[in-house]
Design a protein around this nucleic acid. Structure first.
Ligand SMILES: [Mn+2]
Ligand SMILES: [Mn+2]
Ligand SMILES: [Zn+2]
Ligand SMILES: [Zn+2]
Lengths: 137, 137
DNA sequence: AATAACTTTGCAACCCGGTTGCATGAACTT
DNA sequence: AAGTTCATGCAACCGGGTTGCAAAGTTATT
């Protein structure tokens, strides 16, 4: 639904250009997190730099979050509705070592840990690796 | 101490070549985890590929562990004495957003999390970002 | 409606971490 | 001594990410 897409963009103060609509469409349909190279492949003919900057804009405006899953490329997924990407908003991610897909475990918050008081905390990246439900057959 | 270095290598069934002794020496002196490019800089003249393969050998033999800290390059640090790099051996890592150094928080084990039963667990990478004690001045 | 100012896009080039093929050299075996 | 195995050095490559710059598109101003 075109209207939905535009609403989402407007809500985050992102001008709804054609490119951005298309990218958000793809992100919305995705069940797993997607990387820049993977996103590139979803289009017949699209420029990597434009997609790169689109993702960057989306992330700066907290429409998506990025995941350092150790797969070799950063992956991205839509944020929850009220996400501010603060430590308490974060969830655990899961990388399947068989199909190489990354899942947002949205209902598993990142556990709080007690840092030595001399360290201050800004964010946490927690990635669990193993075999996903699809691959466990 | 040369003897110590060789002992460590022998214990892990790694033939103590000159290159390996030197690399282990550096790793032992390090207080923070080190990346391949950083390791390269520690030597006047050393081949990246050799260092790369040295680190790979060390990791395969569980002398070191690698950390995906999202800094752009993998980082490596010595394992604890009896480490098998199993999930229960893992600890949390900390990346300082100011000095870009990665610390092993050896005494903070990675919290266990309850995955959906359809997922199986192999390993966990947990990286906390913030400002380290040195940088907080 | 025409102009100016700003934003987005496309293309090309680049950087850098990681990885591999291959030839040489060292160590160990027979 | 000759053969085998393993380690090293060099060069080249790959892929993800990033940037400069000019063209195209948008929005604001006269
Ligand atoms: Mn997520
Ligand atoms: Mn560590
Ligand atoms: Zn899978
Ligand atoms: Zn620091």
């Amino acid at each position: 639904m075109k209207k939905e897409i535009d609403n989402k963009l407007n809500l985050k103060n992102i001008k709804p250009t054609a490119m951005r609509q298309l990218v958000l469409q793809v992100l919305t349909e995705q069940k797993t997190a997607i990387s820049l190279p993977e996103l590139e492949q979803k289009f017949e003919k699209a420029d990597k730099a434009t997609l790169y900057r689109t993702l960057k804009t989306f992330q700066e405006n907290k429409l998506i979050h990025s995941i350092e899953d150790g797969s070799g490329s950063l992956r991205y997924a839509l944020c929850q509705d009220n996400c501010e990407c603060d430590p308490e908003d974060l969830h655990v991610h899961f990388l399947c070592t068989n199909c190489n897909q990354t899942f947002c475990l949205k209902d598993i918050p990142v556990p709080t840990i007690n840092l030595p008081s001399s360290f201050s905390l800004e964010s946490v990246n927690m990635v669990v690796k193993g075999v996903c439900s699809n691959c466990k057959k």
